[in-house]
């Protein structure tokens, strides 16, 4: 791994710890935006530009705004509770198990990894001649996996409908809110 990726990962970890430790939620919400921006940088370095794009737009852009919107409906300070040991143990154990799980995973960028043996070579070899444009990600999303993407759009629409049903109860309230 390149040193710059290590540096970004270090900043990412620091940001995560700071978000968890902060009691001033306004700053924590802003920091989640920075967390997303750092992730986007990391994704770019790992050549996953489309993912980085999404992370930067959604994470650093819209969700930080939504988080602030939520904050303005509640309080800005986290309530001080006493430190409890059981949640810490559960989180620590889960995290440890996840780390343990990564030991079994193939190394990053390993060409012999199972995921690079099946389908992916066909996509890489066939996409440009079959579609006539160079972005394989678009070819996979829109065509090879078109059905999955339809499902994803349905999920997003369902999420929007859910939020509309829960929060924007009736247009009368909206108009009252405008005044």
């Amino acid at each position: 791994m390149l040193p710059s990726e290590f540096l970004l990962l270090l900043f990412l970890a620091i940001t995560a710890v700071v978000i968890a430790r902060l009691e001033y939620l306004f700053a924590a919400a802003m920091l989640t935006g920075i967390f997303s921006l750092l992730s986007a940088g990391l994704f770019t370095l790992m050549d996953a530009v489309d993912v980085a794009f999404t992370e930067a737009a959604v994470g650093a852009g819209v969700s930080a705004v939504l988080m602030l919107g939520t904050l303005s409906l509640t309080v800005r300070e986290e309530r001080q509770g006493k430190t409890r040991i059981l949640p810490f143990l559960i989180v620590g154990l889960t995290g440890g198990a996840l780390f343990f799980g990564t030991l079994d995973m193939p190394l990053y960028g390993d060409p012999a990894a199972p995921i690079h043996q099946y389908l992916a070579p066909d996509y890489i070899a066939g996409a440009e001649s079959e579609f006539g444009f160079p972005n394989i990600v678009t070819a996979i999303l829109a065509s090879y996996r078109g059905f999955d993407t339809l499902g994803e759009v349905a999920v997003i629409v369902t999420a929007a409908l859910g939020v509309m049903a829960l929060l924007a109860s009736g247009r009368g309230q909206e108009e009252a809110g405008d005044k």
Binding site: S72, L73, A160, V163, E174, A176
Partner: peptide
């Protein structure tokens, strides 16, 4: 829509 839903509630208060 999500932004409207959140922001609309805030301005309604």
């Amino acid at each position: 829509a999500i932004f409207y839903a959140f922001a609309g509630r805030r301005e309604a208060r």
